[in-house]
Design a protein around this nucleic acid. Structure first.
Length: 113
DNA sequence: GTCATGACAAAGA
DNA sequence: TTCTTTGCCATGA
């Protein structure tokens, strides 16, 4: 196809959109669910293209393994990410999610098979 | 076709 | 414990 074939990106967007409100996940968890597993970078890379994804992708629910809002700087505006997370009931302090484990949502487990 | 970069993650010192 | 290094796969030039 001459048109883009971002099948990998599309998969990432699908999973991210499945994240329940008030929950968060990590790049590695998504990558693992997609099968890329070891390459969490690809997930973050896909997020970089999420600006062109429709409908929009709740990337603010995706953080790194440490629960840190590493990609907040890529938002528009960056502060919006924390705003959205707090709005959904998630506490964010110093760009870090409090009780990250409690809000953690693993697609490979929650969605199971 | 090869080199360099990237919103990460796990292992080693 | 924190800091540093390596691996990972895909995209862009």
């Amino acid at each position: 196809m001459s048109a883009q074939d971002p099948h990998f990106f599309d998969l990432v967007y699908q999973v991210v959109r499945l994240i329940p409100k008030g929950r968060v996940t990590s790049y590695g968890a998504i990558g693992k669910y997609l099968g890329t597993g070891k390459s969490a970078r690809m997930v973050g890379w896909a997020m970089n293209a999420c600006h062109n994804a429709k409908p929009k992708v709740p990337a603010h629910r995706v953080v790194n393994r440490n629960g840190l809002l590493t990609g907040k700087a890529h938002f528009n505006p960056p502060e919006k990410m924390q705003q959205l997370l707090e709005k959904e009931g998630i506490t964010v302090k110093n760009d870090q999610i409090i009780n990250f484990e409690k809000h953690f949502w693993d697609p490979a487990k929650e969605l199971e098979w």
